[in-house]
């Protein structure tokens, strides 16, 4: 499995919900992968912090609303009881069915009790059952915690990527870009940093890796904007060719114009100009 696949197991690992086989496999991986081990440690820490939060309980407002609803129902039931005793049964409240008497309580089904006291009792039972069911089916603290946890993990991962991409060593910057590729995500802050890398990273190899990642997110307008903006100032012919090929994957007249402009730029390497001529004569 890849690191990204192992990292998907970390929430269950943190909450103790992994199968023994998955647990063994993950622990073997964590013992040899410092990055995943760090991630697991951060996740555990976040989980412990979440454990310190208080349990959710019904607030005072719920009690107030319930009391008000109950009082209203009792009043209404008493009124209906009086009306029923006077007018008899068999009327529809909406006046569209049955006798058509306006204001008469409905008697839709045979199981509905006729006596107000029994109706009131049944309503209380149904209300209690509804509240109980609602409480049972509510989004539990566990799922909210996992969601928050995943969000926290993702945010930490993005932050780590941004920090690592700023390293002095070309190898570490490459490593950061490879991690971004493995996550498959490109949040706006990371995208902006990658475009910055493309413009100003001193290593050709790192800039090539950045193009490679950006090429997987061509559906983002910011990616095509960034590539167009960075292409004319790019000093490496190899990176320029990689960017031209990436832009060629877009149906983008502005991108085509930026590529075409390279033909009249004296600073551009002859190999790049030859590639542009060939590319413009092809699909672009």
């Amino acid at each position: 499995m890849k690191c990204s696949e192992f990292q998907r197991l970390l929430p269950d690992y943190t909450t103790g919900n992994l199968t023994p086989a998955a647990l063994r496999e993950l622990e073997a991986h964590l013992s040899v992968c410092p990055a995943c081990a760090d991630e697991a440690s951060r996740l555990r820490s976040a989980w412990e912090r979440l454990g310190g939060l208080s349990e959710e309980a019904p607030g005072g407002a719920l009690r107030t609303r319930f009391d008000a609803m109950l009082a209203q129902y009792v009043t209404q039931a008493e009124c209906e009881a009086e009306t029923g005793e006077t007018d008899g049964a068999g009327a529809d409240r909406g006046g569209t069915q049955g006798s058509g008497r306006v204001g008469a309580p409905s008697r839709p089904v045979g199981w509905w009790p006729r006596r107000p006291a029994a109706q009131f009792g049944l309503v209380l039972v149904l209300l209690a059952a509804g509240l109980g069911l609602g409480w049972h089916l509510r989004p539990g603290p566990g799922s909210r915690d996992i969601e928050a946890l995943m969000s926290e993990v993702q945010r930490l991962r993005d932050e780590v990527a941004l920090v690592r991409i700023d390293q002095a060593s070309a190898v570490d910057r490459l490593s950061a870009i490879n991690n971004i590729r493995q996550t498959g995500r490109l949040p706006a802050s990371v995208l902006e940093t990658l475009i910055g890398t493309l413009v100003s990273d001193p290593s050709v190899n790192v800039r090539l890796a950045a193009v490679d990642v950006l090429a997987s997110h061509l559906d983002r307008q910011a990616v095509s904007d960034g590539l167009r903006g960075a292409l004319p100032g790019q000093s490496s012919p190899l990176v320029q060719i990689a960017m031209i090929e990436t832009l060629a994957g877009l149906d983008d007249p502005q991108g085509q114009q930026v590529v075409r402009d390279l033909l009249t730029d004296d600073r551009v390497d002859p190999a790049v100009r030859a590639h542009v001529r060939w590319r413009l004569g092809r699909s672009m």
Partner: peptide, 8 residues
Amino acid sequence: KPMSFASL
């Protein structure tokens, strides 16, 4: 650690 080799 990654490695990278590139040439025009």
